[in-house]
Computed example of a mutant assay.
Amino acid sequence: MSTTNSFPFQERELSEKEVLQLLSKLADVTDELARVIVGQREVVQQLLVAMLTGGHCLLEGAPGLAKTLMVSSLAKTLELDYKRIQFTPDLMPSDIIGTEILETDHDSGERFFKFKQGPVFTNILLADEINRTPPKTQAALLEAMQERTISYAGSIYPLPKPFFVLATQNPVEQSGTYALPEAQLDRFLMFVRVGYPSAEEEIEILARTTGTQQVTLNEVLHTQDILTLQGLVRQVDISGELLTYISELTRNTRPDSTCNQSVKDFVRWGAGPRAGQALVLCAKANALLNERFAVTLDDIQKVAHGVLRHRILLNFQAQAQNMDTDGVIDSLLKNTPLPNSPLTSNASSSRVG
């Protein structure tokens, strides 16, 4: 974006200096997390993308890869209320959303029921090992994730703003776990896989975590900063050609409306329209993280795996041939025709400053 005096993205116009200060704070968040988390910069970027769009994020990885530490550390860099729920087989819906308790008015002696809010009434909710609790309890989060409200005893209670659910699950040990149903998976904006560190990163982890060093993270982003950044994301430009590309990419995940052979061979159900909406928003957030106010083709392809991998249901043939959703998405990105004009405008002219 060429230099202008203000950015009319909010109720109050933001000056270029204010926008640059907000974007620099995003970089500061990444730097703060790097003081605790070694590597995993791609995962951190995807967490920030989910935060900027106001969506929820599911992290999957083997034990010991710092998934819980990553979420709790992110919360410490934000001036937001944070709560953690350890999901277990005996967890009940009321343990999440809250329950009514019987109280007595000390003046009149009259007894009445009062709703006591559960841990879901927070800004950042860490649902740790979410697949270890039965579907009945998992479903208690559905309304909160979609509507940002809780219904109880005929009353509706709004959740604080902003509100994010960051959930973790362990793909290795399946005994005593309950796979998330597709309806709930679709509520997550992104499904992020956390991989093993490199050899150099693992040596750094050993050095940092076996000594006496204690790291205190600083709060970088405040509540209003986050809400303002979410407003900026919605105003990032995206061209009609890129919207068409996203629509085609989403439709090509469906076996009955694609020519892609991998999809026809291995996919049972493809992604719905919510996937296209998520691709647009995540691409806009990725552009903003890179200090651009126009989406590029690279932004879309950068977030495609995180947005689509949990919205594509594979068939038995895929399991027999060891094909996973990432392989299908790779084929889609390779074979879906690229737009003629992949940029809204020249990338350099869409950069702030």
Rank of each mutant, 00 (worst) to 15 (best):
N346A: 03
V172S: 04
Y245T: 12
I130Q: 01
I96N: 03
S348P: 03
R208A: 07
L308I: 11
T296F: 07
L185D: 01
T168C: 01
I101Y: 12
L332K: 08
N252I: 07
T77Q: 03
Q40D: 00
A207V: 09
T168E: 00
L221K: 14
L65K: 03
N218C: 15
I130T: 02
A320I: 08
S24Y: 05
S348R: 14
Q117V: 06
L281M: 14
H310K: 08
Q174N: 01
L126W: 09
D28L: 10
C282Q: 13
T122K: 07
M70E: 00
L142N: 03
A153H: 06
S155H: 12
V194W: 05
P197Y: 02
V307M: 11
P197N: 03
Q86W: 04
K17P: 02
I238K: 11
V71T: 01
D324I: 09
P181Y: 02
L47P: 10
K116Q: 15
Q319R: 14
K17D: 04
T137H: 10
T336P: 09
P273I: 07
S175H: 07
Q138T: 08
N218V: 13
L125Y: 08
A144L: 05
N131Q: 08
L91P: 12
L227E: 05
G55C: 04
R234T: 06
K114G: 02
L314E: 06
D256Q: 13
